[in-house]
Computed example of a mutant assay.
Amino acid sequence: MSKHFRVSGRLPVKLKELGVRVSSVLEHAGLPSGLFDQSRISLSTEEFFALWRGIGQVSPDPAIGLALGTETKAEHFDPVVLAALSTGNFGEAMRQIARYKQLSCPEELVLEAGDAEWSIHFRWLLAKEMEPAVLTDLCFAWVLGIARHGTGTRISPVRLELQRARAHAKPLERHFGCPVVFGAARNAIVFRASDTALHFVTRNAELLAMLAPQLDEELKRHKGEESFPERVRATIQKKLTGSRPKMQEIARELHISSRTLQRRLQDAGYSFQRALEEARHQLARHYLTNSLLELSETAHLLGYEDSNSFVRAFRVWEGVPPAHWRGARREKAAL
Rank of each mutant, 00 (worst) to 15 (best):
R233H: 01
H76S: 12
R164D: 15
R159N: 00
R244I: 08
A268K: 10
E206Q: 10
V58W: 00
P321Q: 05
H286K: 11
H300N: 09
Y100M: 00
L335K: 11
S2L: 15
E318M: 00
A169P: 09
H4F: 12
A169H: 10
T151Q: 00
G69N: 06
L265M: 00
V232R: 02
R53W: 15
V110D: 06
T235S: 09
K220V: 13
V110R: 12
E107T: 14
L240D: 00
N290D: 14
Q237S: 09
V7C: 00
P62V: 02
E129D: 08
G34Q: 10
R40K: 11
L254Y: 11
G19E: 03
R280C: 00
Y304D: 01
R263V: 08
E108L: 08
D195V: 04
I256D: 04
C178S: 13
A251Y: 06
E47I: 05
V158A: 08
N290H: 15
G303K: 05
A323S: 14
L126G: 01
N308I: 13
D61H: 02
I146K: 07
E27I: 00
S86V: 03
G34N: 15
E92F: 04
T241D: 11
L35I: 08
I146C: 00
R203G: 08
Q38M: 10
H149W: 12
E173Q: 14
M94K: 08
V232W: 05
G224N: 00
Q237P: 01
F36Q: 07
A98H: 07
A167W: 14
V110C: 03
H76P: 03
F122Q: 07
R159A: 10
K128A: 13
R53D: 15
A234W: 05
D37L: 09
E305N: 11
Q262I: 02
L295C: 10
L198A: 02
H28L: 05
K73F: 15
S156P: 06
G242D: 05
I236V: 07
Q57C: 06
V80D: 07
R252W: 13
W142A: 04
A74T: 13
G56Y: 05
G242N: 07
A83I: 08
E331A: 11
S86Q: 07
Q102M: 12
E46G: 07
S307I: 09
L35A: 06
L85N: 05
H281P: 02
E305R: 15
L26E: 04
V20Y: 02
V180H: 03
Q282I: 07
S24Q: 15
N187V: 03
L26P: 01
S59T: 01
P132Y: 02
V134P: 10
L254I: 11
K16N: 12
A167M: 05
A251F: 09
K238C: 13
G65L: 02
A334N: 04
N187Q: 03
G56D: 01
I189L: 14
E117Y: 06
T72V: 12
E112M: 06
D267P: 01
A127Y: 11
E173L: 09
S104H: 13
D137C: 03
V25Q: 09
A279N: 12
E173T: 10
S33Q: 10
P79D: 03
K238F: 08
P12K: 02
Q248E: 11
S104E: 13
